[in-house]
Design a protein around this nucleic acid. Structure first.
Lengths: 191, 191
DNA sequence: GTCTATATAATGATAGAC
DNA sequence: GTCTATCATTATATAGAC
């Protein structure tokens, strides 16, 4: 592993444990067993480390959430995508715990997050439209469909935060409850 | 206004602007035009200020969300309660922006938040049960009902965060979109 | 209650040797 | 690339005078 990757994986672990505000560049360097000066050779500053971790998050979405394009979509695709998404968010949970605060502090980060998020939402839209075309779901009026997808998206982005607020452990069991909620939203429209 | 209240309202404004991590006790004292020492006479530390602001938040919920008990519930009660709740959350928006991080750092705060939140959720449960009893909503199987209420609760807690992530301004128009989402969830079960 | 002054520690970040 | 040394700044918090 390159030193850069060591710094990033160490920072990710510490941020997930204690939050970005509590972890200083000195903490990260010490946990990597390198000097603070060395850390600053690899990263301009602390914000650059956070930005690089967000880039890893975007890459994880691109890699792990892509569906084979020659594939007739099934409802089970939705549940597996959502479950995979929860695992990615959990891996970068510091980001979602502090999301609004982090984005407000760094407008470049906000821009990159928004454009990545928009791509994801478009993919989700296409999937649901494929469900309708395949006769898995009833045709739905455009406004209603948009609302349903917004609700599903909200659940997918905040379900883990919701579990943490309730001090519930994050495990397959509790994660699947989040998947069930999304299906509950769509259920009246499923054939 | 007492000095204690001045400190709290000033801290609230600064926390809402910049986040709790960026605002020090010195910043708060300076904005109040008092000395740091004086601030520490009124509050043990910064965490105590945050705790006191959460107490104000709890009080706002108790005062502004209580319904007259001799009143037959209507669906419009739900929308007005939800809209009022959004206004309260917006007033204490720093708390919801950083909620998971703040609760993880302070177990006493976490406990008080959870018990207040539980009371709120119970009140919401009762309201929906009254809707069913009054023939406004169909009888719903217990598990389904619980899921629907969890979804509504998730929307109510995270809608403003969702708006901020999307860089949408918080105004009656966008707030009402959140109310509509909740009604969209319940719509298939409304008579 | 309020202030000044200060202790102590940590922060982000850089310069320059190797 | 990596280190040591160090900078200026800031943070929380307290002591003691008024």
């Amino acid at each position: 592993m390159s030193k850069r990757d060591l710094i990033l994986s160490t920072a990710l672990e510490l941020f997930n444990q204690k939050g970005t505000a509590e972890i200083s560049t000195n903490h990260i360097a010490e946990a990597c067993s390198i000097s603070p000066g060395n850390l600053y050779y690899h990263f301009r500053n602390k914000a650059a480390i956070i930005q690089a971790l967000f880039e890893q998050l975007y890459a994880a979405w691109d890699i792990e959430l892509s569906l084979p394009s020659d594939h007739t979509p099934q409802l089970s695709d939705l549940t597996s995508i959502v479950a995979t998404n929860y695992h990615i968010i959990w891996r970068y949970r510091f980001a979602y715990r502090e999301l609004v605060a982090l984005l407000r502090q760094d407008s470049a980060l906000h821009a990159s997050f928004l454009s990545t998020r928009q791509r994801g939402f478009s993919g989700f839209q296409q999937l649901v439209e494929q469900f309708i075309a395949a006769g898995i779901m009833w045709p739905i009026e455009a406004n209603t469909l948009d609302q349903l997808m917004q609700i599903c998206w909200l659940i997918s982005e905040f379900w883990l935060n919701n579990l943490e607020i309730q001090q519930q452990s994050i495990e397959p069991n509790t994660i699947n409850t989040g998947v069930s909620l999304m299906l509950r939203v769509l259920q009246p429209y499923i054939i």
